[in-house]
Structure formats: structure tokens, C-alpha cells
């Protein structure tokens, strides 16, 4: 899980062009949207693309998005539970 979280932080910075941040600037449980990292709806779409591209996971129900993309840790947990074998 630790390695997955570290990979995700690097991938999020790359995919979302957060060049002002380093992986260590993002807390595992830090909220990604609004008051946390300040991501927006376009970033949410990029996160969906990231899951598909890097982990071959398609979001089955878009309404689950807010829960899945709450933090890096919640994304990692979703990947662990849903990554194709």
C-alpha cells in the first residue's frame, strides 16, 4: 500500500500538472478537493483517466467518485480492491 500511495502521488502531480508540489507535500489522508489540495471537476476527470491508464480500472459508478477520490489513501484502497488480476 505504501508503494502504491507513493506512485499515486507522483502520477497525480504529473497528470494534473501540479508542478509546484512534491510528492511529500501531499498527505495520505489530505482531502484532494476544495479546501485540501484544491482540485476541481476537470481534475476529477483526469483522475478517472489516470485510473484507466495506469491501473486498467474503469469507474463503474461515477456517483462513487467523491468517496473514491477523497484522498490519495482512498484512491489506493479502491485500486487495491478493484485492480484486475
Amino acid at each position: 500500500m505504501e508503494q502504491l500511495i507513493a506512485d499515486l502521488k507522483r502520477q497525480i502531480i504529473e497528470a494534473l500538472n501540479l508542478k509546484h508540489l512534491k510528492p511529500e507535500d501531499i498527505g495520505d489522508d489530505q482531502p484532494l478537493f476544495v479546501d485540501g489540495l484544491g482540485l476541481d471537476s476537470i481534475d476529477a476527470l483526469e483522475l478517472i483517466v489516470l485510473l484507466q491508464q495506469h491501473y486498467n480500472i474503469k469507474l463503474a459508478n461515477p456517483q462513487d467518485g467523491p468517496q473514491i477520490f477523497k484522498s490519495v489513501k482512498s484512491i489506493a484502497e479502491y485500486i487495491t480492491a478493484n485492480q484486475p488480476k
Binding site: L16, N17, D43, L45, E46, V49
Partner: peptide, 10 residues
């Protein structure tokens, strides 16, 4: 050609 980027599209 790989995965369309929403962030570029806007």
C-alpha cells in the same frame, strides 16, 4: 491517440 486529456480539452 492514447487517452484523451480533459485538462487539455478545456
Amino acid at each position: 491517440k492514447t487517452m484523451a486529456s480533459p485538462a487539455l480539452f478545456v
